[in-house]
């Protein structure tokens, strides 16, 4: 952790922006540059910045869930998306799609999106597990 008022203040402003940017990158990933890997890295960078400026204790509290748990959760989602394909009678990890209209908006929901969420979580979890551990090493 670096004690710097400027950094801390800047991070407070940047952090929510980075986090939103991360989710934005993730969501547009299927049609525009972005996706689980990129979104995950931005999200991880946001928390890493926060951890460096305000300490890992606060960062962990903000994250709410343990990064190693996040890795496991990510793998679970990724595999779950494959299991959905199997249950639909297609080979493991074949994309399954539905196009419901909710409140007048066209949604395209597919198992690849669930898979990408898995990727996102693993990338964030991995990066934060490493950075938090090293930061706490002192």
């Amino acid at each position: 952790m670096m004690k710097s008022l400027i950094l801390e203040t800047a991070t407070k402003l940047l952090f929510p922006l980075l986090l939103m940017f991360s989710i934005f990158l993730f969501l547009r990933g299927h049609n525009d540059p972005g996706g689980g890997f990129i979104g995950g890295l931005v999200g991880a960078a946001a928390f890493a910045l926060f951890a460096i400026s305000s300490g890992t204790d606060k960062a962990r509290k903000l994250l709410r869930i343990n990064p190693t748990f996040m890795i496991g959760l990510g793998l679970f989602f990724a595999i779950l998306s494959g299991v959905i394909s199997v249950m639909a009678g297609t080979p493991f990890l074949t994309g399954q799609w539905a196009f419901p209209v909710v409140f007048g908006a066209d949604l395209s929901l597919g198992s690849p999106i669930l898979f990408d969420i898995g990727v996102y979580l693993v990338v964030v979890g991995f990066t934060l597990a490493v950075i938090f551990s090293l930061e706490e090493e002192g």
């Binding site: 890997f37 890295l41 990338v123 991995f126 990066t127 490493v130 551990s133 090493e137």
Partner: peptide
């Protein structure tokens, strides 16, 4: 290459921690 970059990052992190 996209996955390779991320994996490379993972490898690097692991090697770094091992060194440390």
């Amino acid at each position: 290459v996209l996955t390779a970059i991320v994996i490379g990052f993972g490898l690097f992190a692991f090697a770094l921690v091992l060194t440390y």
